[in-house]
Amino acid sequence: MIALITGATSGIGYATALAFADLDFQLILCGRRQDRLDALKDQLSEQTRVTTLAFDVRDRNDVEAAIQSLPTEWQAIDILVNNAGNAHGLSPIQDGDPADWDQMIDANVQGLLYVSKAVIPGMVARQRGHIVNLSSVAGKQTYANGAVYCASKAAVEALSTGMRLDLTQHGIKVTNIAPGAVETEFSMVRFKGDAERAAKVYEGFTPLTADDIADTIVYAVTAPAHVTIADLTILANAQAAATTIVRK
């Protein structure tokens, strides 16, 4: 089984790489930071076969060139985990920075499409495969000051449904995973390195971990052949909705 994971060098992507290695999946680990990819490859190569691709999902030419460069023995990708993405800024729409909007839309929507377009034709030709798209509870419930991020994740929700409609006939499963509050580098990126502000996001309750989401991805991709886990929303126990969290 060959699995390609985008955004594999941190957070949910990193945890998923570790979980897949425990299943003896062969791994194509993708990210922008070659040094982190090399370290992860060294870490996991004792368990399974690993190769890496360094590219930015926002760059279509970069994506296509990287995936086309895979040697023949790596081209039959069975599982694609579209994990790469980001949130930038938290402000009312009228105060939003268009550069932040570009970052989110380019990575969360276009990046997912670019990688999928490079991988799906091979799955269709083989009449099998599984695509896992990482959405967010924000894609299901828009919240104040997060309009563009929420819109980008709502697009992932729509794309997951559309992919399933188009690809089920080709034996390809599509799973949409919508995490709630997960403590990763997410808030550090959103708040542009402001560690104090990022830490406050997770104060007063126990958030989800990257491992929790990786466990769910494993559950989806190891389900019996006749079962498709179509859509899963995962919340922390203290979280009732996107921004409704009981803090103590």
Rank of each mutant, 00 (worst) to 15 (best):
G162Q: 06
V50L: 08
S116C: 09
V189Y: 04
V227K: 09
A19G: 01
V201I: 12
P224Y: 10
A39K: 07
Q239K: 02
R164D: 02
V109P: 03
A223D: 07
A230I: 05
Q47R: 15
V109D: 01
G7A: 04
A154N: 11
N83T: 02
M123V: 07
D102Q: 13
T243G: 09
D56A: 08
A118Y: 01
Q68D: 13
A65P: 12
G193K: 03
A15S: 10
Q47K: 15
A154M: 11
T72W: 03
L208T: 08
D35A: 14
V119C: 01
S160P: 05
A242P: 04
L53M: 03
Q34V: 15
D106Y: 10
I93C: 12
T51M: 03
P92Q: 09
L112H: 12
A76E: 12
D78L: 08
L70T: 05
R49Y: 10
R247H: 03
A125S: 09
L232H: 03
V63F: 00
L27C: 09
T16A: 08
N83W: 04
R33H: 13
T184I: 04
D22N: 14
V81C: 03
I229T: 09
T244K: 10
Y219E: 08
I131D: 08
S152W: 11
Q43P: 01
E73L: 12
